[in-house]
Simulated assay, not measured.
Amino acid sequence: MSKYRVLVVDDEEDLCEIIRFALEVEGYSVDVVYSAEEALKMNITDYNLLLLDVMMGEISGFRMAHMIRNDPKTAHTPIVFISAKDTENDRLTAFSLGADDYITKPFSIREMLARVKAIIGRFDSKMKIGLQILSYDKLTINLEKKQVLLEEKEIRFTKKEFEILKLFLENRNRLFTREELLKRIWSDEAFVLSRTIDVNITRIRRKIGRYERNIVTKLGLGYCFEG
């Protein structure tokens, strides 16, 4: 089964079956419902892309898109409208609601497949980029490039400083004892003084400007990044 799931929402049952067949041939996992009301009962977060008709029952595709975009859990789910409404105002309404594409009926199945593939590809790329970035306000770590940026300017960090800050940003508000930090950051070294941690923390604080206050010392316990 494909790792990509598509939900088709359209009240034209014959068209839904054509779309389902075409997508499944390309390896997508497809679910079909015939109204926005049915779709909204489903777990939208399960899907990588939604294909929505505009004119449906009591809840239109536009209204459904508005509801999806206003739910933090589904706000970034790609939406493609498929509709017989083809005026400029219809398209502008769709894009103002956060649509990723707008396909007018009748349409080429090959073109639809190409657009679906392109949008899912872009969304995948954004997700991968998101996984490579850690940030707190204007303090950012690029995990792939091993860079620390402060207000978009690169700050030079040693390997150990980078690993400590990365650990803090991945686990904000969590307390790390000195013993934990030694085990996680210096696991490959036979003997390290506890004072080494304090020295590295001091250097990190100096480098991250106003965010130094976010690295809090818990006396007798350890450190945490609050925020």
Rank of each mutant, 00 (worst) to 15 (best):
Y4K: 10
Y4W: 09
D10V: 03
D11R: 13
E13Q: 14
L15S: 09
F21M: 06
F21R: 04
G27Q: 03
E37L: 11
E37D: 13
E37A: 14
E38Y: 08
A39D: 07
M42S: 05
I44K: 05
D46R: 14
L51T: 00
L52I: 13
I59Y: 02
H66Q: 14
R69P: 07
N70T: 01
K73R: 14
T74R: 02
T74F: 01
H76R: 12
H76T: 07
T77D: 03
S83V: 04
E88C: 02
F95V: 06
F107Q: 10
R110I: 05
M112F: 08
V116S: 06
V116R: 08
R122G: 04
S125D: 06
G130V: 02
L131T: 14
Q132A: 15
L134T: 06
S135L: 03
K138M: 05
E144V: 11
I155F: 07
R156G: 00
I164W: 00
K166Y: 12
F168I: 05
R172G: 04
R174N: 10
F176R: 02
F176V: 00
L181N: 04
R184S: 02
S187L: 02
E189M: 11
V192A: 06
T196S: 14
V199T: 12
I201H: 13
I208W: 11
Y211N: 04
R213N: 10
G220T: 05
G222A: 13
G227N: 06
